[in-house]
Design a protein around this nucleic acid. Structure first.
Lengths: 230, 230
DNA sequence: TGTACATCAGTGAACGCGCGTTCACTGATGTAC
DNA sequence: TGTACATCAGTGAACGCGCGTTCACTGATGTAC
């Protein structure tokens, strides 16, 4: 019996394919990723990779799920590891972890949060993993709210009936007991977070900050504070 | 003499090329845009478009500049048209105009603020037009500051020396006389704005808001208020 | 106003490339008895 | 333990496609005298 059984070899080769795909994603971006060049890289004939992957779209889907799980678990870890810090510090730490992940895996980040890949429609399997980061971020707010430590700033109430309903519904979905304006502040914080990361990655902030990390921390602290975290 | 002189015809055909390119951008995205299909659409042979456009990259560059100018002037108009409103209303109006433009031209927006196009590097000509939107947004803050109407919220000062220098330098570049924390708040507002728009366009907020415009206004109002606008 | 020449727009063929996907095949690895 | 058969991984050729870009060419539009 060989040291590598048929089953073992199958997972090894699948790993090789995913590794190569991830590497190529990092070089040419999602739109340029091709099965043929993945096959070439691991020394296989192009038709052979069809034994492991159903199609190019299937490969993209796997990369997406993998990436979502990767950021997702990084964020979850950060939130868990900072359970003893102040709420605000914990928020900044979790957000910073998302940023670090993005800087380390720029193309994977852009695969998730950049332009849609032309001709590709993400299947429903990607939705679940996609919510992990957001839930990790929300958990910081929830714990603060549950602990009665939330001090949301009072902002002008431009929240109409429909929006108020949405905010309350959202609060229910993520199971937090926080006032509307805290939920709204979370949405602000959430979009600001990804907006700044995206701008950093696409160089829109190029000339702005000598120390981008410091800017990120300052911005994240400000919105976290505004959300009511202390 | 023909009604259409050689010179006139030249601009007509160039317009046709740009129109077709813009349309195709809207269908296949920037990565999928091809000179050959643009030529096909306007009933020309592919080599003929090289009389009007130096290369595919050149076409992309023109589309980018055109798009930057389009959002830029829309934002400038909005800021000008609301010069008599309150600062906060003016801010929300200008931001909403950017959002509307993005919803009307999603692929042009993504060309500017989505993932970089693989194999394409934007030349320096795009930098100038690219700053127009940002300057239009900044002008709202500047006018409020100049009028002595700015009431920036006090946020925890996690602004170290290096960042403070950057913020002061930025304030100089955009010629506003506002405290560090207002400049920081502007960067928050600016990234939040584009972050939310990007999330709307890529459907990340799909299930969240019944009325996305209401959410946008509420969010923009909150950050505008936080920036010190009233 | 008419002629000679220069400029320019558009043609069609070609080069060389890479892509996703299918299919009949060989040979090795496993399984049942 | 040995043999017969089934399963599976990988091969190589092929299909049909679209792409960017170059080049020698024709014929029409302009310009100078």
């Amino acid at each position: 019996m060989a040291a590598t059984s048929r089953g073992q070899r199958r997972v090894d080769v699948t790993d090789q394919i995913m590794d190569a795909a991830r590497r190529q994603l990092g070089e040419v971006g999602a739109a340029g990723l091709s099965l043929r060049s993945v096959a070439r890289e691991i020394g296989m004939v192009s038709s052979a990779v069809y034994r492991y992957v159903a199609s190019r779209d299937d490969l993209l889907t796997r990369l997406i799920i993998e990436a979502y799980d990767s950021v997702g678990s990084a964020a979850e870890d950060a939130a868990r590891d900072h359970a003893d810090s102040t709420d605000l510090e914990r928020w900044v730490a979790t957000a910073s972890t998302v940023r670090s992940w993005a800087l380390e895996h720029p193309h994977q980040y852009l695969l998730l949060y950049g332009s849609p890949v032309p001709g590709y429609a993400a299947p429903d399997d990607t939705v679940g993993p996609g919510t992990r980061v957001t839930f990790a971020l929300v958990s910081v707010l929830r714990d603060a709210a549950d602990g009665g430590r939330l001090r949301p700033a009072s902002t002008p109430a431009v929240v109409d009936r429909v929006l108020a309903d949405d905010l309350r519904r959202l609060a229910g979905v993520v199971e937090i007991a926080a006032p509307d304006r805290a939920v709204l502040a979370f949405l602000v914080a959430w979009t600001q977070l990804f907006g700044l990361i995206s701008f950093e990655l696409t160089n829109q902030t190029r000339t702005m900050a000598t120390d981008p990390a410091a800017l990120f921390v300052a911005a994240t602290t400000a919105v976290g504070h505004h959300m009511g975290l202390r």
